[in-house]
Amino acid sequence: MGEPRHSSTTLALMQELALTEEEIARRKAFLEFHDEDVQRLQELGGLAQQYADEVIEDFYRHLLAFDESRRFFTDPAVLARVKAAQRDYFLRLTRGVYDGAYVEDRLRIGVAHERINLPVALYVGAYGFYLRAVLRRVQEAYQHRPAEVLPLFVSLLKVVFLDMGLAIETYLAQRERTIRLQQEAIRELSTPVLPLRERLLLLPLIGAIDAQRAQQLTAQLLHSIRAYRAKVVVMDITGVPAVDSAVANHFIQTVQAARLMGATVIVSGLSPEVAHTLVRIGVDLGMVHTVGTLQDGIEAAERLLGYTVQKLEPPMLVPHPEEGQ
């Protein structure tokens, strides 16, 4: 299942999961993974060499017997390569060295699994199969010393649980990274600056405003003010669920920056709840031109620009073709 690749991703992951030497030691302590376990695993090492090929054959026979796991091994060349890597992976369990390099190796495998979208249940299930295959062989080899089987197997379990913890955290970390990237993408999509009339821009804000987004939208607005030679901007915050002092501060700074560029900003869409809250916190929006609704905002902007909107009597309704005649 494993393929070594991309050590830079793995290193970043080591940092993200804060897998320092101390943290690795803490994890081992929690697993009660001690020196005697290392010795037992080393003792198992010789036997592991002997059964490695057989276990790998059993392991892939099992994986290829199920549709959900077979689909990862459709290419025979890939299968051969993965088999060899998997053999190394298993052998490393009993090599007796469980340091930072070991952990890094385990994370690399986790990253590879995440990339091919290997379900966690398959990973855990396959590991279970491996453990049963090994247990059978250890029991055979120690049939004259049966009392030693359990301690050996328990030591193996400890290191396997160390592995599984790392692998599952790798999955989670990768998913979180994906979510972060998507959030950034949404952020970019969500702040359009719309030219509404000559010299009039509309900036409709939807969703939560955080520091990063506030900075981005200020920058975007300032560019647009220059590009459209805008004089008035209506910033509509109807779709912003919460305005705390930090968000209010962002708004004030945006308004000030726009003013330096020669544009007046009208903030529209303050809900009664938000207005009430801002007054209670003590935010002074005195220097910001605020109006209730988007419509009020656009009307105020038009007045500032000298537009008058006139209603025609009778109204010139354009009939729909099918309703016409």
């Binding site: 705390d244 009664p272 709840e273």
Partner: peptide, 17 residues
């Protein structure tokens, strides 16, 4: 009330920030 919900949410926002 809806206004109180907003006040509470904003207070949480302030201390969390």
């Amino acid at each position: 009330s809806s206004i109180d919900q907003t006040l509470i949410a904003t207070a949480i926002s302030e201390v969390a920030r």
